[in-house]
Design a protein around this nucleic acid. Structure first.
Length: 491
RNA sequence: GGUUCCUUGGCCGAGUGGCUAGGCAGCGGUCUGCAAAACCGUGUACGGCGGUUCGACUCCGCCAGGAACCUCCA
């Protein structure tokens, strides 16, 4: 593996050379979605980011086991005793259906969206509801080691006790004293010893319909437990990379570390990776803030702030054009810029097929490849890699124009390189223009009009020719006279 | 209030102690009956004030503005 990959590790706050625990193999765990509503643009970011990581690791020759969970047991919305109701249950009641029906519905949508975005499915996609037994076992282990206590059928993690032996807050850079002084005691009648303790098992209220039996009560597992249980089950007690959104760093991942450490004495994860947020008007896009645009809305253009529809590949390219640890701001202008840029890149990939080889090359192909891979190896710097790819676009167009030349060997390599990096590593794909042959009547009607216009042009009857073009344009069909003939597309 | 981070040209968005990011838009050109598209070429920027340095957009300090986390959150 000539390209040494460097990864920014949240734990050390530094870029570190990536060294897998087992040579040639990588265990990767990424926090998946809670399936209680449609996925929005913000959700696309981690899955595209870690898809890029998965693809790049695979490209580098690693065998990757990629585990990404589905959270389907519901998390408590608030902690006020007795009124706590999880999101999935709440949604189920609103929609008058079974909780698992909600889960299934939104999981299906999520999968369809991910497929549209060309996100590779994980090797294993475990569901929290299918791993209650494993989660109960983790609680027993934590209990056995003395870091949990029971209160009215619920089990809580004893953060203070844990902090005496281990350090709580290593991932998010907090220390317990700060947390103590800065956490307000809102709930006077809490069962918890300290407000910063978190639930491992919650006893279900009688009306709570999502519930499972346990040694302590009929209830449901705590918010952070599933990832501890499932990552261990499928990747082992120690594994390489754990990823997720930056907003999960605290408390979610911090608690995961505490659970793992408390249950078996040591941490599991070597590298923690966190992607930054997508913002809109400078503010985080979030379900709770109500400023989100769902992926389906983006793909169809059906949202009041959208000026047009944006294809899945435009969204993917937009996300890849920013580094994953930076915020990226949504705007129509930015999306449109990505759309145009992507078209240019894909056009060059097509041009590549028609290029003719010459005796020798005047272009520096090796340098281009090296720079692209160096960028990706530098903590997945996709924007830099893409910038170099655009330099390559210029190179390709110049070869076509005849101002540069390329040898047969180099041409073959250039084709291979673009195919690999654009399709395999960045995960972009060709999208059919809407002018496809799905409607023969339309296609044949247009052919007729185009032929009439061609005849008018031949007779220098520009008025008729322009009339056909302009009026089609008003209907929403754009004609373009290219060198190879007339092209049409639906706007 | 605590912790962490950000502030780059019209927009998005990289990066570095001295050398062109890139995309989109704009402008100029090629092509075209015209237009669109395509292609080629092109500018300037690093929030403010100090400091370190031969030299800072890049390091340090202060100030201003913004964000994330501290509660579910991708």
């Amino acid at each position: 593996m000539e390209n040494q990959l460097f990864i920014y590790n949240t734990l050390s706050r530094k870029k570190e050379a990536f060294k897998p625990l087992v040579p040639g193999k990588v265990g990767l765990y990424v926090c998946g979605p809670t399936v209680y509503s449609n996925s929005h643009l913000g959700h696309a970011r981690p899955f595209i980011t870690f898809d890029l990581l998965y693809r790049y690791l695979t490209f580098l020759g690693y065998k990757v086991r990629y585990v990404r969970n589905i959270t389907d047991v519901g998390h408590l919305e608030d902690e006020v005793e007795g009124t706590g109701e999880d999101r999935i249950t709440k949604k189920a009641r609103l929609e008058q259906i079974e909780p698992m029906e909600v889960v299934q519905k939104y999981m299906n949508t999520f999968h369809r969206n991910m497929d549209d975005l060309n996100v590779t499915p994980p090797s294993i996609e475990p569901r929290a509801s299918g791993h209650i037994i494993e989660q109960i076992q983790v609680i027993k282990d934590i209990q056995k080691n003395g870091y949990a206590y029971e209160a009215n059928g619920s089990i809580y993690f004893d953060v203070e006790k844990y902090n005496q032996k281990y350090k709580y807050g290593i991932l998010s850079g907090r220390n317990l004293d700060d947390i103590k002084t800065n956490t307000r005691q809102l709930d006077g009648q809490s069962e918890k010893k300290n407000s910063f303790d978190f639930a491992l098992w919650k006893k279900a209220a009688p009306e709570h319909i999502m519930r499972w039996p346990s040694p302590w009560s009929d209830g449901f597992p705590g918010w952070h437990l599933e990832c501890s249980a499932m990552s261990t089950k499928y990747l082992g007690e120690k594994f390489d990379i754990h990823g997720g959104g930056m907003d999960l760093t605290f408390p979610h991942h911090e608690c995961e570390i505490a659970q793992n450490t408390a249950s078996r004495g040591e941490e599991s994860v070597q590298y923690w990776m966190h992607n930054n947020m997508i913002t809109i008007n400078g503010q985080k896009m979030a379900r709770s803030l109500g400023n989100f645009i769902t992926l389906d809305e983006l793909f169809t253009g059906k949202h009041e702030i959208l000026e047009q529809a944006y294809s899945p590949m435009t969204i993917r390219f937009f996300i890849l054009q920013a580094h994953y640890r930076s915020t990226i701001d949504f705007s129509n202008e930015a999306l449109q810029a990505s759309e145009k840029g992507l078209e240019r890149l894909m056009a060059a990939v097509k041009t590549l097929a028609e290029l003719k080889a010459s005796e020798q090359s005047t272009v520096d192909l090796a340098g281009l490849e090296e720079k692209c891979y160096a960028a990706l190896s530098d903590d997945l710097n996709s924007p830099i890699a893409i910038a170099h790819l655009f330099d390559g676009v210029k190179m390709i167009n110049s070869i076509k124009a005849g101002t540069e030349s390329i040898s047969a060997t180099d041409l073959e390599e250039l084709r291979k390189f673009y195919h690999t990096i654009v399709f395999d590593v960045l995960g972009l794909k060709e999208e059919q223009a809407s002018a496809g042959g799905d409607n023969h009547i339309l296609a044949e009607t247009l052919e007729l009009l185009i032929n009439l216009r061609r005849d008018a042009k031949a007779n220098k009857d520009w008025a008729t020719a322009d009339k056909i073009r302009d009026e089609l344009n008003e209907i929403g069909i754009e004609l373009k006279d290219t060198k190879d003939g007339v092209e049409w597309s639906l706007k």
